[in-house]
Design a protein around this nucleic acid. Structure first.
Lengths: 85, 85
DNA sequence: CTGTATCCGGCTGGATACTG
DNA sequence: CAGTATCCAGCCGGATACAG
């Protein structure tokens, strides 16, 4: 979720940037999450053959569409959700 | 999620009916889930003082709105999601 | 029937050390 | 820097027994 939001906003991010933006996530989880998102055709992965290594992540078209859907529902949520008391 | 879908479709369901509809859920989880949904103003709970006890669950207005949002996004998803291969 | 309380096994995911 | 591999603590949630 946070990966999708971040990439929806910044368009392109490196692994370490994502890790910094997503508070508290471990490198391990970020790796497996990005791998899943890639498998599901939501993010694209671009590797630069350099030293030090550099990998950029971005949303696919489908990922962008999904991102908008999620932004829709979450902004609707913050507008309409009231805690009972 | 399944609770919301079920109640969105059937409008009113008893505890045991929900449990039957939601495949594999345990009584314990259904209880805690419904309690959370109630706390968050998504479902209403109506208790009939009878023997045997009878409790009906239904969505609140907010719950219905949420239900529609979820149905929207999930149907969009099945329309647009393609597995890569 | 609709829960509540307790136990407990499995999975999730953080921490750490290591590689290219 | 961007991962991979391993370990392991904590939590989640199923099963069970019990209560009202």
């Amino acid at each position: 979720m946070f990966c999708i939001y971040n990439l929806g906003y910044y368009e392109i991010l490196r692994f370490s940037e994502l890790k910094k933006n997503i508070d508290g996530i471990s490198g391990r989880m970020l790796t497996v999450t990005l791998k899943k998102l890639e498998e599901h055709g939501i993010v694209k992965r671009k590797v630069y053959s350099e030293a030090p290594p550099k990998v950029e992540y971005a949303l696919t078209d489908f990922g962008f569409a999904l991102s908008n859907k999620l932004i829709d529902i979450s902004s609707w949520f913050v507008d309409n959700y009231k805690v009972l008391k």
